[in-house]
Design a protein around this nucleic acid. Sequence first.
RNA 1: GCGGGUGUAGCUCAAUGGCUAGAGCAUCAGCCUUCCAAGCUGAAUGUUAGGGGUUCGAGUCCCCUCACCCGCUCCA
Length: 528
Amino acid sequence: MAATADVMDKIVALCKRRGFIFQSSEVYGGIGGFWDYGPLGVELKRNVKDAWWADMVRNAPLGPDNIEFQMVGVDCSIIMNPKVWEASGHVGGFSDPMQTCRQCKRHLRADQIADAVQKSEWHEELKRIWHEATPPNLDKLKSWARKRGSKLAPGLALVREPGVVIDALARALARAADPRQSAFDAVSNVLFSVTGRQSASDICPHCGGELTEPREFNLMFETFVGAMQDSSSKAYLRPETAQGIFANFKNVLDSTRVKLPLGIAQIGKAFRNEINPRNYTFRSREFEQYEIEFFCHPSEADMWYEFWRDVRHRWYVELGLRSDKLRLREHEPDELAHYARTCADVEYDFPFGLSELEGIANRTDFDLKAHISRSGKDLSYFDDQRKERFVPYVIEPSGGVDRSVLAFITEAYTVDENRASPELMKFHPRLAPTKAAVFPLVAKDGLPEIAEPIYRDIKKSYPCQYDAKQSIGRRYARMDEAGTPFCFTIDGQTKEDGTVTVRDRDDASQIRIDKSRCLEYLRDRLPI
RNA sequence: GCGGGUGUAGCUCAAUGGCUAGAGCAUCAGCCUUCCAAGCUGAAUGUUAGGGGUUCGAGUCCCCUCACCCGCUCCA
């Protein structure tokens, strides 16, 4: 674990040193959960998004049995009518009331507490002792508190202040007409706290300690539309781009002559007020998503789900996530969100653990039906072939752009102690921020005069750097850290036979090609 | 939000409560250099996170604030 943490630290350091990723507002000490992309990072991220848009939208793959289907894009506003988020369930359901244990300081979801208490070992034992005798044996309870209790539930009132609690229990039993009616659940609150006011839902399942009041954690950022800040002007920054697509489903149908099956794609920012952003850019409060909502007939939903799951997994592999760190994992039925019938995650094993890059879900007709019901608009679809009107099912491949970028960075990061410059970034050439560099071996003897036109020629087609300063080794090393796949070097031999060397980033090998063929060399190795 | 840790140059780190806060690496300039962070010379770089206090004197001790990191929680 120490070693893997070190790897992440090295990656973070390289990303800062070379200008991939900076902490947002760093001059003011930073701000948690927000990150900036530097000159190399913005090129890398743009390449990732461009590759997605090119491969998924403009040149979408053929469907099962080579079905050609339609794929279009949208770019929706970040702030939408708040009713969108009421319909989608985000206002009500996208928040988790949390409670904190005053004793052990654990943070717990309020809706899971009562259940967890019932299942806890200390609760089982208390219950058993209580029911063993009639009336309950208080001495036995007292000795349990001293021994087992102090281990299992050190935060429990009965354990912390046995005298006070046992007295309170004795009084409660004396008051009861029939001790047998003093069912465990009815008086158990006395066991839990000296005030007797706590119930099983206010007790820490781990240590028996008292919890704070439930606190609302709505993960949506709030803002106000217009200058007046009151409840009527409250709005939200979108927590996902998907709802913009659902809200525009009818607009797209009515304006573009598309037919089902139909995919609508969007890349854009989304915002979630995470309780605790962690793991570098992985869990950010402001992040970018690429999402497809793929609308189809309900009877074909399973087929399209499998299709998209495999297409999306393959896309990551083809862009360089070749190691066994990339995994495709089907969700277990009990893991599924309320809106999803089936779901698979594309996961990457980062140094900080296996984490999700993208989820592919069968969302059924949940979202469209929610918007039909809330807005009163008819969002159903009439299929001319089938002569049938229906609410489409939706397959949703929803990926995190920044998470993918971090995975590509992590996979590309390579340490080779046999090289003079051990650290390098082996980006897929399609993703590499800079595609090539041009160096005169020395900054004299007419070499710069040969190199500069080559650089200017390449620059018209590909991001390219020119560098004549310092030793050649240092220049190669800098390009290795930037992940530049190819370096062209002009040397003395260039003046004699017109050839330059091409140096390969991954193995530092060199070949000579004619100086007129540099651009052609790149075109053969870079798509588009 | 709670607990723990950290905060000195771009990076890694020094500096017993005591002189003008130093060193290596990196950066930049010049020289040299015909293929892998080479060599020589030189330069630039700090509100010691911010604020307050104790003291003759604070990077160092105390308090507050801020930020980041690690747990609890999270899923694009």
